[in-house]
Design a protein around this nucleic acid. Structure first.
Lengths: 340, 340
DNA sequence: CCGCTCCATCAAATCGTTTTGCCTCAGGGT
DNA sequence: ACCCTGAGGCAAAACGATTTGATGGAGCGG
């Protein structure tokens, strides 16, 4: 093997200079052969290519990054990669930018603002070409003080007033409205909602309310309860709903986990779903098809969100687009399954 | 703000040379203040620190990487970050190395060998300090031909005979044996197993067999069926088991998804679990506590695996350890829940 | 034969650090 | 007086690529 022979002959990696001397040309020429930025004679090119192959040359990307000021690396900062929503989002992003040769540097913040800031700093210092920020709707804009005006930032799920910051936001409100309208169209009369904690998921509540208004359904305060996004929280919220003197015949939950908790209560009470009570969730997590019956829900397009974030990023990195912050909103379609 | 003032005054970032001239010293001295590798007079240090603060200097990490030949970045190559097992593993790794200032570059291979090779190359070219390879048990050692002897590699779930490659392997076999013994100790007589596809998960099968032998349970061939790791696969395997003239009263599944499929069949047939038939899974995925009753299973320690991979890596990167490949095996404890 | 354009190539500067070798000065021991 | 040591500082050489300006011919019209 010429490769291993070359590798063993010298401790470290082959440099462009060694290729050049082996081929009897200057480093410049080798660089031009590789990049194609200037014309190179066919014969010379052949010699150089041979030398490259023979020595097993691989370019040192760090050196290139230093000179070109591009790293072909983008940072994605999420609360927790363990959360399937962010895992899928990250995958969508990775798939979108992979073809263009960009790697993805994943940062877990656990939603802590100081970690968000730390990773912003770190990403800038490392010279990433772009940052995708998906820390949920509570994205404080504190950390943007730290940011270099050069590197593009994409915000997912929240709109920020940073000049060069594009945003991609799933259309929670329309999705929730669809869920509400759907329940109404099925003839359910007393439709309740299990919301998220105060100040969270407000657009989901808004969409639901607007649907109820359009369908001429009254929603007394007792039918609007809250949970903390967890299965247990949904369980308890559903308990209080079912303890009402006159029970709801349908309930829309602000996320799937709470919907699953609500389903637990229905099973516990011996209620059949959706005959006795209908349930609709939001997010379309994997678990939605594991419970029985399968959960009717609204899809939160994580993969697509990551993908369009990647596209927006690349359009800026390439210089194709240099204008003000764009906003693309993604539809959240209703997925009809067994619980409504 | 002195920071923004400095930033606006010049287009690009502040360099160490600017700090030096602002403080009236040489770049060398600034570097020494930052790194502490050589003594610097207290007065000088103060001046330099002030200059750094005043100009808002941030070191250019790319330049540093080029000079020091370390990137403080480690690559983790997994089949798919979307798979919760690998997401958790990645998080464990990230948490372990984060404190030491290492970032994690995530690569999704989808289990394709050419992508594995491509990312190996890419990671080497980018100058990562280490690679964690978690592409499951079928890790071909093809891509190791590409690898620079310098950069340490940790293999998760498979043992490779690369000289400097440490391995961390979850103890599937003991875990499976525990599952089998547990079923036997509960008095189940006809214990079946739904295995993975041929050549996969052999140690899980081995552990189960050894437990059966120790418990003096016969396992006729008809009780050893196969699925393809999916819920559907488990469903079908369970169907054929339940179509037997004499049914098993317990079944151990090589992973949770198949166990959930088996559970579907039990529900469909009106069998009560675990009275009529017991079911035990493997992995302890989130879904295990979503099904009813909650799945009794064997825990596959993803987080710990990622964490110890990080530790092994750091011990090599720091030069603390330079010996032959180590192997650490992680226990897979049985988690008793409702299905057995 | 001159001037012009193209093509191919090269030398040298640059990116922003870290690190090595050398210098100076002060102080202490003999 | 002399040597030695340690502290504190600087100049310059890496690190390994890309990029710019210059150069030397070749081809060609006038």
């Amino acid at each position: 093997m010429s490769r291993s022979e070359a590798a063993s002959s010298q401790h470290s990696r082959v440099t462009i200079a060694q290729v050049a001397s082996h081929a009897g040309v200057s480093p410049t020429t080798v660089s031009h052969v590789l990049s194609g930025k200037r014309a190179v004679g066919a014969a010379t090119r052949g010699t150089v290519m041979d030398a490259i192959r023979e020595l097993g040359y691989r370019p040192n990307i760090v050196a290139r990054n230093l000179r070109t000021r591009r790293s072909h690396m983008i940072a994605v900062v999420v609360p927790d990669i363990t959360n399937p929503f962010y895992a899928v989002l990250t995958r969508g992003l990775a798939d979108a930018v992979d073809a263009a040769g960009h790697g993805t540097y994943v940062c877990n913040t656990d939603g802590q603002h100081d970690r968000e800031r730390k990773f912003f700093q770190d990403a800038m210092d490392r010279g990433v070409d772009g940052i995708v920020f998906a820390s949920g709707e509570t994205a404080s804009q504190v950390m943007f003080g730290e940011v270099d005006q050069q590197t593009p930032i994409i915000c997912i799920g929240a709109q920020l007033d940073h000049p060069l910051c594009d945003a991609v936001i799933p259309d929670d409100e329309t999705g929730s409205r669809a869920a509400g309208s759907f329940l109404a169209s099925r003839g359910y009369q007393r439709i309740a909602m299990i919301q998220g904690p105060p100040h969270y998921g407000v657009s989901r509540t808004a969409g639901f309310r607007s649907a109820m208004q359009a369908a001429k359904r009254k929603v007394p305060a007792e039918l609007m309860v809250r949970g903390n996004w967890t299965r247990k929280g949904g369980y308890e919220a559903m308990k209080t709903l079912m303890a009402l003197k006159v029970r709801p015949d349908a309930v829309f939950c602000a996320n799937d986990l709470m919907a699953i908790g609500a389903l637990d209560v229905a099973h516990e009470l011996g209620l059949s779903v959706p005959q006795d009570v209908a349930i609709v969730g939001f997010d379309d997590v994997d678990a939605a098809t594991i419970v029985t019956p399968h959960l009717t829900t609204v899809r939160n397009p994580a993969y697509e969100a990551g993908g369009t974030a990647g596209d927006l990023l690349m359009s800026r990195m390439s210089g194709r687009y240099t204008g003000a912050g764009r906003t693309v909103v993604l539809p959240c379609p209703l997925i009809e399954r067994g619980t409504a």
